[in-house]
């Protein structure tokens, strides 16, 4: 299966939840970098496009024992049995062998949304409408990322255009290896509290690999066996338990 081979590098993230204050800088930076359009008329938190979405998690106790934590969730770039890759009927999703990044190619996408039902992280988003910016604001779009049309799925790709730029820069100097400093996703760069570490998980010297091995590190829905490349950290027990598979059960929390 095409998801089985081992990539050259495994780019990943470690997000320190104890440093995340839910400011939303990562989400805003992501939207700017990746030309994610503003909400279409009537779009809501259920139909929006947020490659990086910050969820609020609660400990389930009532006031004042209640506690809140923020979970920034983007595509988790699963490394094994990647749910979305295997289900796409026409190969619009694959894993880049050089970076381990799970792709999503809008021009190939049929818009069947099977990958979205397959993704347990709800990290894939559908373009329910054509993208629209206020007049002339297309002058503020990033030329390194193409704008998606309606009817296709999109999601985080670890700012792959920045990787491409880093490769081009290295190649211009005759090098095949990129300088790690040249490849930092927008959300990582934008985080004011530096809660997100990014890099090659396979490089034992990298900050991200060191942090991913920390005792307080965990991954979301690890029991599903999809080997996500995004790690989370927290010293709070209840926050770490939030990564487990068990579903929420509070009926009150339901939104119609």
């Amino acid at each position: 299966m095409n998801t089985a081979h081992k990539p050259k590098a495994r780019y990943g993230m470690v997000i320190d939840l104890d440093r995340c204050n839910g400011c939303g800088g990562c989400a805003a930076a992501c939207a700017v970098e990746n030309n994610v359009p503003p909400a279409a008329p009537k779009a809501s938190d259920r139909t929006g496009l947020t490659w990086m979405r910050i969820y609020r998690a609660e400990n389930g106790r009532s006031f004042p024992e209640n506690r809140t934590a923020f979970f920034p969730i983007s595509c988790q770039h699963c490394g094994a049995h990647t749910p979305c890759v295997s289900v796409c009927p026409q190969n619009a999703v694959d894993i880049n062998p050089e970076t381990g990044v799970v792709s999503q190619i809008p021009p190939r996408c049929l818009g069947c949304r099977y990958c979205m039902t397959a993704c347990p992280f709800h990290a894939r988003y559908f373009n329910w409408s054509d993208p629209e910016w206020p007049r002339d604001m297309e002058n503020a779009l990033n030329p390194d990322v193409s704008v998606r049309m309606r009817g296709v799925v999109e999601k985080c790709n670890f700012c792959h255009s920045r990787w491409q730029a880093a490769v081009a820069k290295a190649a211009a100097n005759g090098k095949r290896e990129i300088d790690p400093a040249d490849y930092v996703p927008a959300c990582v760069e934008a985080c004011p509290t530096e809660a997100i570490a990014f890099g090659n998980l396979d490089d034992p010297r990298s900050e991200v690999s060191r942090q991913s091995r920390a005792p307080n590190a965990f991954r979301l829905l690890a029991k599903l066996g999809t080997d996500p490349k995004v790690y989370y950290r927290s010293d709070r027990d209840w926050v770490r338990r939030m990564g487990d598979t068990d579903v929420a059960y509070e009926s009150e929390a339901s939104r119609g």
Binding site: R46, Y55, R56, A57, E58, F71, I73, T117, P120, F121, H122, L220, L221, R241, M242, G243, D244, T245, D246, V247, A248, E250, S251, A253, S254, R255, G256
Partner: peptide, 13 residues
């Protein structure tokens, strides 16, 4: 689809 997978996501309709 109504059953959430992430622990902090609610059931939906």
């Amino acid at each position: 689809l109504a059953v959430p997978t992430l622990k902090f996501e609610p059931f939906m309709l």
